[in-house]
Design a protein around this nucleic acid. Structure first.
Lengths: 118, 118
DNA sequence: TGTAGTGTGTAGTATATGCTACACACTTGC
DNA sequence: GCAAGTGTGTAGCATATACTACACACTACA
């Protein structure tokens, strides 16, 4: 049961059905910058998910959210990690506080921050 | 210039001065569960910072904040990463929004969430 | 003067991560 | 039937991560 592999296989095959010939293993792999056989193994869960670079490239090609794809792969983007590392105590506290908050509450927070009216 | 190494060396030596004999390289290393020579090299920047487990143990022994120590080591705790990975889009968005916010603004957010009055 | 405590130097090791190279087999269309 | 396109199998490899084991050298002090 490879979440990441299953997910990208289905997505790729769906796109391949939509526009045949454009989303073959080889096409996608070469666009990502990896070997086709490697991608094949990843899709079937014979290999763990690739590195962050490859996952992000894959996300772009498959028209998916990179953060979500990284999460499926058990990773968090280095960009986000760097933001956290700059103020570790602050962010650690905030994230832990929000752990059990429902989505809509967190989302509300996001909006408030973005709009600046708070 | 090893931030992590310098930091723990100073902290350890300060504690060693306070209570001599209790914070030698060997004492601390064995409490952490690593070799003394390894810790020595880390302190002098001859080795990169150790793994998360060792860093957390070190933080506890040196009475420091683990998240801060991990940040010094260029890491983010797996616990925090897991929280993010459960709702990657939501947290990614929030964290990016907060990237350039001043400390006090983020802190205010933390407090509001904690107190629930929002 | 020897032994306990201190730090350091040398020389490794095990495991994980992130891949490549290339041959093989099957299907489809001409 | 053969060429192009499809996926897969085998056999690796380079680099990074996270350490261990043990000998050595210096200092203090009893």
């Amino acid at each position: 049961m490879s979440k990441f592999g299953d997910y990208i296989r289905e997505k790729r095959e769906a796109l391949q059905k939509e526009s045949p010939g454009t989303y073959s293993l080889r096409k996608v792999a070469s666009a990502v910058g990896i070997e086709a056989s490697y991608l094949s193994k990843i899709e079937r869960g014979q290999q763990p998910p690739p590195g962050e670079r490859s996952i992000s490239a894959l996300a772009e090609i498959l028209n998916e959210d990179p953060d979500m794809m990284l999460a499926l792969a058990g990773k968090v983007s280095d960009e986000l990690q760097e933001i956290i590392r700059k103020r570790p105590k602050l962010f650690a506290r905030l994230i832990r506080e929000l752990r059990d908050m429902p989505d809509h509450a967190v989302l509300r927070l996001v909006r408030e921050v973005r709009d600046g009216n708070w």
